[in-house]
């Protein structure tokens, strides 16, 4: 489990995280939402052991990142928000092989093939990363981390540049990781991604302002802070128009079940 316990962190005088607590259990998919500058990317780096908190602690499988940051970095795979920050080689397949080779993995070709397959970019294996679109680079960055087979996966806005096919590939990869018993945290602005999480954590100005299963978190969040799933907007919209709706909807099934009665 990744346990963030009462973490505070500042950049000089700018506080980025204030007393933040959350956890990501093995086999769990946690979505982290919040406006820009609310501290999400900083939190991702704390979970990965890249940043050490000023106060509080982050434990990965029981060991503090302070005591052993390198262990946290091995256990937690971090996909950075800016895919250009992550590429280390020119050719896509070489880029994916770089990490596994670095840790002395024996099955490099298998790992590379698996990661390409999971992200739906097998056709890009021989391409020069520089010639790829922003969305394609985003998928390469994700594949690079998957090839490391980390116990936990933290992805920072992985679908921001992706079309519907790319988004589906990422969500399928999340499901695969989850079923393999790995914990996944996804920072996202996309409510349709968050709607599929086990839990949603909403941040604002460095603090957690709502946390719980999606329906609960979306009901508690201050209006206008984050986008809501389409079906949640619909159930809210019908209520505003005087139609009784039993509960907040997340999926098309939720809505159809109540309306088609």
């Amino acid at each position: 489990m990744i346990e963030v316990r009462h973490v505070s962190l500042s950049y000089g005088k700018t506080p980025a995280l204030k007393d933040v607590s959350l956890c990501v259990r093995p086999g769990e998919f946690v979505a982290i939402m919040g406006p820009g500058a609310s501290g999400k990317s900083t939190l991702a780096r704390v979970m990965d052991g890249l940043y050490l908190p000023d106060a509080g602690d982050c434990l990965v499988d029981g060991v503090s990142t302070r005591a052993d940051p390198m262990r946290a970095r091995r256990l937690v795979g971090l996909v950075l928000q800016e895919p250009d920050d992550q590429a280390v080689a020119r050719r896509v397949a070489d880029d994916l092989a770089f990490g596994p080779r670095n840790i002395g993995a024996a099955d490099i070709p298998e790992r590379v093939a698996e990661a390409l397959l999971q992200t739906g970019i097998a056709h890009l294996a021989d391409r020069d990363i520089g010639s790829l679109s922003g969305g394609q680079k985003q998928l390469v960055a994700i594949a690079g981390v998957l090839a490391m087979r980390p116990a936990y996966l933290v992805m920072d806005e992985p679908t921001s540049l992706l079309d519907s096919d790319g988004k589906r590939a990422v969500m399928d990869a999340v499901a695969t990781q989850k079923h393999a018993g790995r914990g996944v945290a996804v920072i996202t602005q996309d409510p349709s991604v968050a709607a599929r999480a086990d839990r949603v954590v909403v941040m604002s100005r460095g603090s957690v302002v709502a946390q719980g299963p999606p329906a609960e978190a979306f009901a508690k969040v201050p209006p206008g802070l984050i986008g809501l799933p389409e079906m949640t907007r619909l159930s809210n919209g019908l209520r505003d128009r005087g139609i009784a709706v039993k509960r907040l909807w997340l999926t098309v099934d939720d809505a159809a079940e109540e309306l088609c009665r």
Binding site: D163, E230, M231, V252, A255, A256, L259, C260
Partner: peptide, 14 residues
């Protein structure tokens, strides 16, 4: 364009 949405899908179901 490969675009669909929950709203479009629900309208069809309704």
């Amino acid at each position: 364009a490969g675009i669909t949405s929950d709203t479009i899908e629900l309208a069809r179901r309704l």
